[in-house]
Design a protein around this nucleic acid. Structure first.
Lengths: 207, 207, 207, 207
DNA sequence: AATGAATGAGCCTTCATTCAT
DNA sequence: GATGAATGAAGGCTCATTCAT
């Protein structure tokens, strides 16, 4: 995120940005293991070797840490997805890309993925606003990419709020079960599985 | 709920069962509005007009209330689903029944459905054991009903852990969004939507 | 305590007195293992297979149980000691009897002995009065037995409040350590030890 | 208690030690008056003008306070006793010193002495380990001081576990009664009494 | 005499947050 | 920017006791 100090890894004193990133990483480990409500400031402190004061200095309060982590995660996911979608061109490729990216990203960012699935984060009004904006931007980009395929007749015309469930619902559900079955390392999702869900998604939305 | 004096010994004083049920109902209202972690014993108390002591007398602790509620909810859902599935005979009818029942049950039991979606309940080992057993029983019954259809070639042969995501994933995702868009009143899910998801499910698993 | 029902041991329904005795025995087990403050009514209930209501019916409240147990223990000890002292006649025999009886009784009634050593029982005014009276009676009997020996010159004339510490202090201390070193079964105090303390006591108070 | 700025790093902020000491003093006052189990955190709070949080910050929990107080008391007693014993040389002087120091220390630290006699403190495993170590160290030092006197024939050779009861048992018992007869003000133990118990102790263990 | 559901005061403890250094 | 002692509101839970059956 900054180009200061090329030796990012072992610098004796971290940059502010790096410090914040490492705090978020530690917090994620806590949230993943203890749950969000189950994690205390003190837990994060121990995990990050950071003083209470510093935590508050950087993020305002506990909620701030949870929000920042969530937002960064969403953005990372969205950015990746959009980049991936832009690389393909046909409707089929794009629909399948959604599924494949979902699998790949989740497997590569297990703890973060689990975190983004949390349904009990209490966001501040401000965070909610930021998220809404980020989501709108994302949704617009995605729909823009697909609108043509619908208009051209390659894809079925369906109620807008059914596309996501139809295309992503199955992988999401599969993935959720897969994630809760393993908390540590582990392989990725097999090529066959990915294609199975990709095919299913396409089968449902193609004309 | 049963005639008085049927068997004096093993019938919990008539009122006891009713009391417990009403506590669970009140707790659900709290959990739904405040979140599980956000609900305090005192909230439940006010909602149920019950003393702290009684709450603990009946359920051991807050966790116990949450567990019992969850288990009862799951059982109610499972029982309904099995009953519904047994009424249909063809593969197509059954697959579609899964989707339709999911929609109907969810619409009829909104708060409970939302609660069953919670991903942050801390179960005791004992509760986990009970749930595991309940789940196994359910899964066995369901798979038994569908096995024949797969063997007869009406349905595709797929990895066992993909059927649920493929069939239920979309409705679940749709339903989840639908549930969070409204916390109180609300119609049911429209016939068209239900059929859209039912058709999609069938399209994916039929041969 | 009552002569009702000669078959005290295995009668299908206990007499009231027997019931109370068995409650006290159960309570003692609890107090011994959990401490007095650490023991709850519920613990006693489980240990005695008695309902809460019955406990209160028989003893009024928790304090009542602790008091009754204490008083009965003291009386049993005192009675035994007096009986023993009356059997001997010389000053030396009597002083040594005190020590020997202390050892024997303690070894035979370990849990009760430990209980009587408790220094944190909260007695009601009424219980304190009963205890005071019992103690006075006991002390009077004991002093009466020894007064002559002092007057006759067999024993030293010392401040009244030093006889007990001088004679019983060592065994008491030894015994206390011995008791806390073993909570279950175990042998009794060896003959040699007993005589060692008996001799020491006599050595100190003889003229 | 020490000069400022001697070693900035490992000196707990000057105040910290003082704060902890004053908390222990306040706790002792409570324990002495209300009993250990009878004392609530809130009592200690009022007595020490300390917030709940601070209490827990410094001692972990109520048990921690009780333990620390006990350990500090024991150490103070042991240190004093050893110092005193080292000042005398003959067997007789030493045995009598034990008794005299016991009396003096108890009279000078009444509340603390009463507290050390408590038989209902629930120690954590960690505290028990510390106490065991402290006790061993003490016992070793004491026995080392007396071994020569036994070998030289000035003192009787007795089972190791009888020396303490024989020498200290009587004063302990006397002292215990003396302590419970007065909770506030009060003189010290009279010179005659002290010598009576000192003589008795020597009479019993001398050859 | 027995039973056990109900009660609620009161206790211990946690934890987010502040702030002086 | 960093540190950690201090704060106190708030929460979960225990437990002696009562009382209708």
């Amino acid at each position: 995120m900054s180009n200061k100090n090329e030796q990012q890894k072992r610098a004796p004193r971290e940059t502010t940005a790096a410090r914040q990133a490492s705090i978020l990483a530690g917090a994620l480990r806590c949230f993943d293991e203890l749950g969000i409500d189950g994690t205390t400031i003190s837990d994060i402190q121990k995990e990050t070797k950071c003083s209470v004061g510093s935590l508050y200095h950087h993020f305002g309060n506990k909620e701030g840490i949870a929000e920042e982590l969530f937002i960064e995660g969403i953005q990372q996911f969205n950015t990746g997805m959009i980049r991936k979608l832009k690389r393909s061109t046909t409707a089929e490729e794009r629909v399948k890309s959604v599924v494949r990216f979902y699998c790949d990203w989740t497997a590569r960012n297990r703890a973060l993925a689990r975190y983004l699935h949390s349904r009990n984060i209490e966001f501040s009004e401000e965070a909610r606003a930021r998220l809404r904006q980020i989501h709108e931007l994302y949704i617009n980009q995605v729909f823009q990419l697909f609108t043509d395929h619908v208009l051209s007749g390659e894809m079925r015309a369906l109620p807008l709020d059914t596309y996501v469930p139809l295309i992503s619902g199955p992988v999401q559900e599969f993935t959720r079960r897969w994630l809760s079955g393993q908390s540590g390392s582990g392989s990725s999702i097999s090529r066959e599985m990915k294609e199975l869900f990709a095919d299913a998604a396409w089968k449902v939305v193609k004309t």
